[in-house]
Write a protein that binds this DNA or RNA. Structure first.
Length: 156
DNA sequence: GCCAACGTTGGC
DNA sequence: GCCAACGTTGGC
């Protein structure tokens, strides 16, 4: 079982939006970065844990927990000419983009802010905080997962 | 809105 | 295969 961190702009799709989807969850389509795609296509399993991170917004940080409920899905947006994720180089014979489906697990009572993460010495080497890391999907170690989860239960 | 840090594209 | 130009991400 692997842990991940998914970034999302809450103005586009927030932890509350995910909660509203309930058991059906949400198809994580539209990822157009090869490294992130490879994580989804090759490394994810049903049941994997996901930290749901709010980026590019007022309160940046980890907002809650989700889980992977379906894997090895072909991203339908690549074939949709009306989608901003349309990829003219993709074909049904040779799809280029893959995705997974995730579902809500919990929302943190207190968002674990980026500031808080940076202040935590034990998170010094988490990929999320490495200089210039703009990947929207990142693996998270068990140790880092536990630290962030414990931060979410602490008073700010 | 700015800008650093990339990833991607395309000419050569 | 190199690399300049361009586009995007994401914190501030």
């Amino acid at each position: 079982m692997q842990n991940w961190l998914f970034k999302s702009e809450p103005s586009e799709f927030s932890i509350d939006d995910l909660k509203q989807r309930g058991q059906r969850g949400e198809l994580w389509d539209g990822v157009r970065n090869y490294q992130a795609r490879n994580f989804m296509r090759d490394k994810m399993s049903v049941g994997d844990n996901v930290l749901f991170y709010h980026s590019s917004c007022k309160h940046v940080g980890v907002a809650g927990v989700a889980k992977v409920i379906e894997t090895e899905l072909i991203d339908p947006a690549q074939f949709d000419e009306n989608s901003k994720y349309f990829d003219p180089k993709a074909s049904h014979d040779k799809p280029r983009w893959f995705c997974v489906r995730i579902a809500f697990v919990s929302k943190f009572a207190n968002l674990v802010s980026l500031q808080r993460l940076k202040a935590e010495a034990s998170l010094r080497d988490i990929d999320l905080l490495k200089r210039g890391n703009r990947l929207s999907i990142l693996p998270v170690s068990d140790t880092h997962w536990q630290i962030i989860e414990s931060l979410s239960q602490r008073e700010r």
